[in-house]
Structure formats: structure tokens, C-alpha cells
Design a protein around this nucleic acid. Sequence first.
RNA 1: GGCGAGGUAGCUCAGUUGGUUAGAGCGCAGGAUUCAUAACCCUGAGGCCGAGAGUUCAAAUCUCUCUCUCGCUACCA
Length: 686
Amino acid sequence: MEKKSYTVTAALPYANGPLHLGHIAGVYLPADIFVRFLRLQKHDVAFICGSDEHGAAITLRAKKEGVQPQEIVDKYHTLIKHSFEKFEISFDIFHRTSSELHHQYASEFFKTLHEKGAFEEQKSLQYFDATYQQFLADRYITGTCPKCQHPNAYGDQCEKCGADLSPTELINPTSTLSGNTPELKETTHWYLPMNKHEEWLRDWIQKGSIEGEIIHDPKTWKNQVVGQCMSWINGGLRARAMTRDLDWGIPVPLPNSEGKVLYVWLDAPIGYISATQQWAIDNGENWKDYWCKEEAKDRKLIHFIGKDNIVFHAIIFPILLKSHGDFILPENVPAYEFLNLEGDKFSTSRNWAVWLHEYLEHYPNKVDELKYVLTSIAPENKDSEFTWADFQTRINSELADIYGNFVNRVTVLIHKYYEGVIPSAHELTIYDQKVLSEIATIPGKISDLLYQYKIREAQQEMMNLARIGNKYLADEEPWKVIKSDPIRVETILKVALQITEKLALCSRVFLPKTADTLLNMLQINSEDWDVTESMLISGNSIGTPTILFEKITDEWVDHEKSKLITTPITNSKYPIMKELISFEDFTKMDLRIGHVIAAEKMENADKLLVLKVDTGIDERTIVSGIAKHYDAAAILGKKVVVLMNLAPRKIRGVESHGMLLMAENSEGELSALISDRDFDFGVTIA
RNA sequence: GGCGAGGUAGCUCAGUUGGUUAGAGCGCAGGAUUCAUAACCCUGAGGCCGAGAGUUCAAAUCUCUCUCUCGCUACCA
């Protein structure tokens, strides 16, 4: 086999939130399977990733939470890194873009491009916050949407009507930094004139050729990748700014560029390179062997990404690499579609997600189970669907019943008949030979599929080994033959154990923990993918049978499903959202405006006021625990929101009929909810 | 709005350049079996291939129209 070398990258996760199953199924797990396979094929491979820690979203979040951006990225970098480790994603390095090395190299990269004339300087008018003395990124400006009049549209987009906006279109623009109206001021940015690159990109995407030389086969690229790239190119590429006015990121390494940083999408993919450099330093390698034309001539660069990242990896980054001049271009950009969850999109803001770190915390011994399920439903060609019921079915009736049970059958029989010692095979029947030659073809099939990035089908082939094994046992019936021909049974079980061996070897790619367990049991150790000769040694004893995969109970499924609705939104400042209620539940509440016509402090109680409230239909007594925030005089005469039909309750001897609604902040301070228009008391609220 | 990718069995998905009765796994039904995690093995039932029109001897596959989902839409990252 021809020896090849690979540099494999997985999209840098953005360090402002944890990872969920969608990220794993659509990028990291497929990449990891591919890389584990390449390593067993003895290819020279570097598997590179890291966290993406710059960009406006992080600074906005930091401001909102009242912390430094560094605190946020430190927190999520650590969380994400640990999750990957526990989930056994086998990166050679998981680096970060806030590192000094990355800052240095990204600056250098930018300078080289600048010296080669890859950028164009353009002046434009941009909003400037005079109080903070800085230009404002689009996300830092809010105002009224000119299309739908939504009062809180962002400078780039109105989240209500979905319109794409530019900051200058906003009515009454406001700086989110100071709350003041920003002023328009001239600023300079460095643009990448992508239009100049259309011609070679077209050839490269469609024919896989650069300057007439074929460097990859475009048929191996996914439809959606080629389709989307060609749509961009045919639509005409335009210059795109590669710098931003922001104080978080990599400073533009040029004179007169104070307050400007590299665009995070320029910075992030360079992170693949700087991460490789760090890894090379740590391991005595030369990073150029992994990236540069001269040194890495036959190396294949593969970017695993999600579909939202296609143009950046298949158009913009290649332009940067080619403009720089030293680099190889990606050989393929396998882009995965998205994973949905129980019929709905994964959503961080709505907290509709299964978080990897939580899963790993709750089920640290169920890593391979999750890998199996996510590989089975990997969104290779279209969006796919994760449900907990499906998770249960796949583990119980595939992993446990077919795979686990097969291994169990073989080991139990060997223990029963031979006290755990591997028997010798004698004369092979035609059927034995057929089975053995059939299983010998499986590694090759898996190999072909993996080179085409068809991981779900490849995993199916692994499962076929267990199916073949189960059928072999059913056909040969050693538990019957043992009574008439015990010698024959030795052969049968040896063959069955060879199927187990093959299964274990193939599992190294998909189910590494399970593979370790099995290979350990069989006392086999191999670093090669396709092992033609069995390495089982007759006379060795195998360990005691253990259950490989426990079944998933209905309780588990119910528990996980209920968590989806009630899990907290990841924002520590405010209490978590309560369980959803139906509209019918809501209509049960009778809310009205009431008028406080009398108020007095209850004796011998610090917190209580006894109020008399006119609700329009009656005058009632309400005891309210607000004395620390409102004295009697302050609340007297106010129009307040009253929950009318709360069951009456005696408080310190006085019966209270209803409840005053109050807002409460994290310090426990209260504010009465009052009507902002002068409606008469007695009106209902709905 | 424009562009890209999808819509195939109850579920999750395959279907190469148009070519017999449209496939797999799971689920379901029936049978067989007992070494095994009530597991395994065999058989079977399930599809107007999103809707409509067209090209063709022949369409899931090519063309057009419509519809639904997801993504991108150039300063979101």
C-alpha cells in the first residue's frame, strides 16, 4: 500500500459555550474515526484542533456578564478540552487562538499577505463611540429596524424580521457600549479582493486543478460543498474586510491601525497552522512538513467542518493560503449537515441541547455507546435526527443484542467447555472457510468506505461481523454438536473466536474503548489495520465473560427527555426557567389591576404589610411581604397587579385574599409591577 | 427575496452514468431455537420515491412549475 501523509483539521469550536451532540456528530467524531483509521493504515497524520477565542460575540458576552473576555474563553477552552479528552477524540493537539504563538504567527501571516499585496485598503464611514473612543462593530450597535420597526435590531441584522441590515440603515442607532448615539467617522480596513481569485477558484473547485495540474478529484467532494462554492463564484465574489474595529483579538500588525484586529475568520483558520507549530515544537517535528508546498509535497490537507462553514474553508481560506504562496490547498473539505434533537434544531439560547460535558459527567462509562449512536446517524448528506428513544433502540437492539451478545456467547461457550482456554482448530469445513474468507473482506470494505467519508456505512460493516458471527453459531450449533463430536466443537469455537478477533480489530476505529477491552481479553496487540493472519494463540486463556454493553432503561430515556424541557439556561445571574405550562394553565390565572386604598405595617412582623385593595369587583385584604422595600405610605394609592384567584391563606392570623405581583432581582430587591398607562383599576390582564 | 442542499418503508437512512418485481438496519407479524444480555436464527408484511406537468421504448434518477425543511446571503461567528 502506498504510504500517504495527512494533515487533518476539525473546525475550531467557538469558546463561548459548551459542545453539544450536534457538534460531535457533525465534525469531531467523523474526523476522529477517519484519523484513527489513517493511523492504523500507518499513514503519517497530524490531527489538529483548538478553540477559537476571538470575535465580537465573546466581547459582547463578557460585557453582559461583567467579566473579561479572557475569563470566558479560559472557562470554555478548559471545558471543551476536557470534554474532548473524556470522549476520546484523539487530537494530536488541542490548541487555542489566544495563545502567544498564535498571535505571533497570525500577525506574521497577515504581514506576509500584506507585503505580497494580497489586501486592498479601503476607507469607509463607520459608527464611532466618542465616550469609549472606539469604532463599533455591527453587533455593538442597536436601533430601530427600518423594515419592521423592531426597536432592538442589531447593526447587521434584525432578529425579528430577519432582514440583513447595515448599521447606517438603523433608525436611532445606539452604542451598546455607552448607550449614546454614535457618530459616523472615517475608518480604514484591509479587504481581501476575492473577485481577483474567481478564475482559479472555478478550476480548482470544478476540476480540482491549479494552473492545469490536477491536485484532487472533485467527484470526491460532497455535492453541497461544490454546489455552494460554485453558487458564490458564479454570483461574483466581492472584496471582504479582513480587519475589524475591536479591542479583542490579534492587533493588525501595521502602522496606524490602533484599535483594529484581524477578522476572526482570518484569524481562526490560521489557528490550524499555529496549533501545528505548537505541536511540532512539543514533539520535535517540523511544522512545515505538514503545511508547506516544499516540505509537504504529497500531503493531503483535510478540513472536517459543518455545513455553515463551507465558504470559509473552501473559498476564503484557500485564497489566503494561495496568496501567501507557501502552502498546500485542502485536498477535501468534508462538510457535514446538522443534527437535530427530538424534532427541533439544537439551540444554545433556547437551551435545546444535549451537552457533551453533562452526558460525560452522568454517564462516564457510556462513551462508546454514544459514539456508536452518533456514527449511525451522522448527518453525512442531509440533516439527521437524534432522539433518546432512538438512542435506546440502537444501543439495546444493535450494540447489546447483536455485538455484545455475540461476544458473550463465544466467551461463555469457551468457558463452559474449555475453562476459558482457546482451543485449536482442526479440519475446516467448506462453510468454515467461507465464513473466514468472508470476514477477511470486511476490513477492506470499511477501508474503501472510510476513504469516501462514509462512516455510517463503514460502521455497519463492522456490525456485519457480529451478524456473521451470530449466524455462524446458529448454523453450527456447538451446544448440540458437543454431545456427539466434541473435537468438531473446538474448531467451531476457534472460528467463532476469530470472528470476535476481527470484530475487535475493526472496532478500534469506531469503539476504541470496547476494542481495547476485547483485544486485552484475547491477548492481542496490533497496530495494523488489516491483519490477515489470526493472532490468537491456542492454549492462551481468555478472561471471564463480562457484559460489554448494558441496556438502556426506559427510565433513562424518560429522565433525559424531561431534562430537555427543564434544563437551566446557562446564565448564572438569573434563575432557571420553570417548567413549561399550557395556555390553559395560563388562562386559569385571574390577573387584574388593583388600587391600594389602605396600607399598614403588620405589628410584630418585619416584612409584612396589610393592604386593602380595590379590585373593581370587591375590596379585599391582601397581606404582602414587601415591607422591607415599600413602607405603607409609598405603596398607598398605587395601581398594582393583583393575582385574584390565589387560594386564600392566613398569614400571622390575617387572611390574605390574593397576591401582589412584584419583580425581584438577584439581590432580592422588589419592585411593584404597575400599569404604565392610566387605566382604571379593575381591568383584567391577559 | 436570491442561491445551494435536501424531501424515498412506522423510524434512521442507502440508491453509482435513467434499465427487470425500489434497498439496508431497526421496529412490527409469524416460525424455529435455547450457548447467550427474553438475546440469536429463518420467513414475511410494509413505499403513488413531497405534488403536478414534460422528455423518453423506459424516470426515484433528466427538464420545468409548485410546496416543505435546513444552510448561505458577503461587517454573525
